[in-house]
Amino acid sequence: MLEANNLAVEFAGRGRRARAVDGVNLSVGAGEIVALVGESGCGKTTLARTLLGLERPTSGEVRYDGSALSHRGRALKAYRRQVQLILQDPMGSLNPRQTVYEAVAEGPRIHGLPDEEQVVAEALSRAGLRPPERFFLRYPHELSGGQRQRVVIAGALALNPKVLIADEPVASLDASVRGEILALLLRLRNELGLSALVVTHDLGLAWNIADRVAVMYLGRIVESGPVEQILTAPQHPYTQALLSVLPESPDRIVLTGEPPDPTRIPTGCRFHPRCQLLASGKAAAAGIDTACHSEPLPILSSAADPQTACHLTLVDS
């Protein structure tokens, strides 16, 4: 349905270039929910924006329904009807002086859809704001955080999209409200067959709603596959560390240092400066330590079965 092929996105900074997305293959099938997880700064938002056509790739391409995404005006506009973005902070993505009705009607107006009022009402009630008429004239500040996020989702649904791309959709919501919004995303998939790419730093969210998960580190996917498998039996040391710091896990692997810098991507395996297997000598015992330092790893494919970009698993298989 939606696919990234060898996608790379660079930003020119002062001096060095930041390789925010540095070779990514990723696909989201029809009716599938894929979670993209990783620490902040690893390139999740940049990848999501590029999939939406908001950022131009430096190399590689985005494909939708079998054809490459065009960045020309009309084609891009049509594409944006099919693939909708839901942002993290509902307060930031709603105009405080616009009523709920106006906010949801904006998309349908831009795309010249008929029966505006009916479209808005239907979108609101699909997003769980019922009866919709009661919300038409409300302003964002008169709504709770969960209701505001529902308005944002309604705005996306109004265009009858096929794919939702949600960037940290519940990060700013309270725990008890979070579950309701996630349940809504799941219901939209089950009832309307929507596909979704959900960008998050929260592995619990992936467990709650995603079919597949892709773990991103410093611009690359380092592990991907079905949620049950990846989250209960992770193969990549980075995924293992991420899971180990969740409460309730017995042995914590707390990586030292800060999330790394995309202007200085390490040679060899890009995770090697923080890798616990390399630090503990396990990599050396397996005879892969030289490779960790100097041999780049292949880019994972967009296939659905489990894959890991680590020299150790390459040796094992």
């Binding site: 008890s176 579950g179 919004i181 996630l182 467990w207 949620v227 209960t232």
Partner: peptide
């Protein structure tokens, strides 16, 4: 609302609380 990974009762079943 905070799922335990591996707990099958929360798999594809986010739990929230109605209302605000």
């Amino acid at each position: 609302a905070f799922p335990t990974i591996g707990d099958l009762s929360s798999r594809l079943a986010p739990k929230g609380l109605g209302g605000d």
